[in-house]
Amino acid sequence: MKKVGVLGGGQLGRMMIQSAMNLNIQVKTLDPDPNAPCKATAHEFVVGSLNDYDTVMEFAKDIDVLTIEIENVNTDALFDLEKQGLTVYPKPDHIKMIQDKRVQKQFYIDNDIPTSPFVLIDSIDELNNHKNMLPAVMKVGKGGYDGRGVQVMKTEEDFSKGFEAPSLLEKMVDIDKEIAIIAARNENGEISTFPAVEVVYHESNLVDYLLSPATISDEVEQKAKEIATSLVTKMNFIGLLAIEFFVDKEGNVIVNEIAPRTHNSGHQTIEGNLTSQFDQHIRAILNLPLGDTSRRSASAMVNVLGEKGYTGVAKYEGLNEVLQLSGVYIHLYEKHMTKPERKMGHITIVAPTKEELFEKVDAVKKNFKVIA
């Protein structure tokens, strides 16, 4: 029986464990939070820092494969574990590259992957040298996530809101749609892509909901799949890679960001596709045949976020109303405490038509609330 170690014990790890258990795979999880979502489901749950070299080295002593559910981990330990012969997927050099958006963007340029024009910024004072980039988006190189570390800059007055840290300044794209594709590649070099999903963002840069299929042309979908396949091939990537794209008003498809793991943009695959992203991740890192990613039906995913104005022990409003809807599946992450915009769960919706899908998305968003 294989034993997989997972750095990170959040909701992505929890759903990954559910897929691993179906194949009799044991999962050992490391997380700094003693009450992390994986605690109740992992075969072994270890409390410790993901960024402490010795903790990660000790954690990996008795496992067959090491993987992640979050990028913020100690890559020095991963490089040394790989040198000692442990299988680490995604590879440490890929995690290290993706940890820094500056290095990530440079990789796209060096490998002919379409992306938006950008300049590297080392201090806020340098912004005045790049007025020609406006309107633009400033992104901190390391540490930003879920919309944090991102600042829209429309005029020179916005320069004062910049980050005093190594960052990049991207030319703003005239966006028509934001889509995402999840690609998988195993050690044998087999590659599989999920159908594109359309991503609709909350006002705070968090994902509000996803739609599958995305409302894009076949040509745009094909372009995105070709870029995704090219990306995992050029990286020699093994595991699951989530790729976020911008589609501009002229139909150009460009890469925004990537994540080397299961991702919020793939949650609807649990009920909406023949193989879920979590099943596919396990298959990819263990070099098993990749699964069929075809859609079962039209599907959507609504993020369940803590309501603004509520902090404390979570209470769920509208549970009965939502459970009465057919084709609606609630996934709560076993987080006991809520705070504004904390990810508390997601709700997947499947329907035979897009019209019915939109009706149910509206009903879920109207009725289901996380308060305290």
Rank of each mutant, 00 (worst) to 15 (best):
I243F: 09
Y209C: 06
G251L: 04
V220T: 14
N256L: 03
D208R: 11
H263W: 05
E257P: 09
T233S: 11
L211M: 08
K223A: 04
S212W: 12
F246V: 05
L211Y: 09
F246A: 01
H263E: 00
I238N: 05
I216K: 02
D218R: 10
G251F: 09
A196K: 03
V200Q: 03
V247Y: 02
D208H: 14
L206R: 11
N252Q: 10
P213E: 07
Q222F: 12
T233Y: 05
P260S: 09
E221M: 12
P213F: 11
T229Q: 14
V247E: 00
Y209G: 06
V207F: 14
A228F: 11
I227E: 01
V220K: 00
A214F: 12
V199I: 15
K249H: 14
E219D: 14
N205V: 11
F237L: 00
A196R: 04
E250G: 08
N252I: 08
V255E: 02
V232E: 00
G239P: 06
V247K: 00
Y209K: 03
A224P: 13
I238M: 02
E257G: 09
T233V: 04
P213A: 04
F245T: 11
H263Q: 00
T262F: 11
F194C: 02
D248A: 09
N252P: 12
I238H: 05
N256E: 02
Y201P: 10
L210R: 07
V255Q: 02
A228D: 00
F194H: 03
I216P: 02
F194T: 04
L240T: 15
N252A: 08
D218L: 15
E219C: 05
T215H: 15
E198T: 13
G251K: 03
L240N: 03
K249S: 14
F194N: 00
P195K: 02
P195M: 09
A259R: 03
E257I: 08
N205T: 14
V220I: 15
L211W: 08
P213Q: 07
I254W: 11
E257R: 05
I216Q: 00
V232H: 02
I238E: 02
K225D: 09
E221C: 14
N252V: 07
N256G: 07
A228W: 04
E250T: 15
S204P: 09
D208G: 10
Y201D: 01
K234D: 01
E203C: 11
H202K: 14
V197R: 03
K223M: 07
L241E: 04
V253A: 06
D208E: 13
N256M: 06
K234E: 00
V247S: 01
S204Q: 12
L210C: 01
K223P: 10
E219W: 12
E250I: 10
S212G: 14
V232Y: 02
K249A: 06
V255K: 03
R261V: 06
F194G: 00
K234Y: 05
E257W: 11
D218N: 15
I243N: 00
K234M: 01
L211G: 08
I227V: 13
T233K: 10
A224N: 06
S217P: 05
S212Y: 10
E219M: 09
E219I: 03
E226G: 12
T233H: 07
R261P: 06
L240H: 08
F246H: 05
V207G: 08
D248W: 13
V232P: 02
N236P: 07
R261I: 04
S204F: 13
V200F: 13
E257Y: 14
H202D: 14
E244R: 06
Y209L: 07
E244N: 08
E198Y: 10
